[in-house]
């Protein structure tokens, strides 16, 4: 499977994504420069974390004007798989590929630590290798990761099963105490209507190596690799 990892000026998790992907057999991963307009025949687009354009205005708000994002939108509209991690999630929201916005963390500080995520849906290209209710230990690192959407949008996201991961505690309980940044309804990651675009604040690429304390993030990448042959794919289609 071929992955295109986008590089914006200020991307800083691009090398990490390439490294993490390289540890999965059967993957091929290449950088795509933001000024390019071709994804080079990739099967999956990864929008990595970082501070695109310094995030001086609003996180992700300038990256959406990069030439490559027009191509990514067309790719997504045609059903192509897109995953946005951290700043990548913010960029996908700013680009209108995902609803809602990421705002300043509840306690105003940047926060880097391991958190727990509960897998809410498994009928997607991003979570099919997991099980419903599974608890994943994956780190977050962001200053603006508080997910916000209006009530109408939240209602739709819930009704359509588009919240894929929520912040929880080690036992899988979703509560205010297990919410690291004040996100609405502990939302850590959502997908689009077509279920082919996924954005999440936690960093699965930082949890693919036992030496880094957790390998729970690998289930996201494994799901992508399994998807072409997944029985769920047929039912989804």
């Amino acid at each position: 499977m071929k992955f295109a990892v986008l590089r914006f000026p200020g991307s800083n998790c691009d090398q990490d994504c390439i490294h993490a992907l390289s540890t999965f057999p059967g993957t091929e991963a290449d950088y795509v420069w933001h000024k390019d307009t071709s994804l080079g025949g990739a099967d999956v687009v990864v929008v990595p974390g970082g501070f695109s354009y310094g995030d001086y205005l609003r996180t992700g708000s300038i990256a959406r004007f990069s030439p490559i994002m027009k191509t990514v939108k067309e790719f997504a509209a045609a059903g192509g798989l897109v995953i946005g991690i951290c700043n990548g999630f913010q960029i996908l929201c700013e680009s209108g590929l995902l609803p809602g916005a990421l705002v300043r963390n509840r306690d105003l500080h940047f926060l880097c630590k391991h958190v727990y995520l509960r897998v809410e849906q498994t009928d997607t290209p991003f979570t099919n290798a997991s099980t419903k209710g599974a608890v994943l230990n994956v780190p977050v690192a962001h200053g603006e990761g508080c997910y916000f959407a209006d009530d109408e949008t939240l209602k739709r996201l819930n009704a359509e099963g588009r919240v894929l991961v929520r912040y929880c505690d080690a036992q899988g309980q979703v509560s205010d105490a297990s919410n690291p940044n004040g996100s609405k309804e502990n939302i850590a990651g959502i997908c689009n209507e077509g279920r082919n675009v996924f954005g999440l604040m936690p960093h699965p690429e930082r949890a693919c190596d036992p030496f880094l304390g957790s390998t729970d993030g690998s289930v996201i990448f494994q799901s992508l690799l399994n998807w072409p042959t997944s029985p769920l794919r047929k039912s989804a289609a």
Binding site: H109, A141, F211, L212
Partner: peptide, 16 residues
């Protein structure tokens, strides 16, 4: 202090 620093980027911090 250190929760405000991104100490995990570059996938190297094996001892936090």
């Amino acid at each position: 202090v250190w929760r405000q620093y991104d100490h995990m980027v570059r996938l190297g911090a094996t001892v936090l």
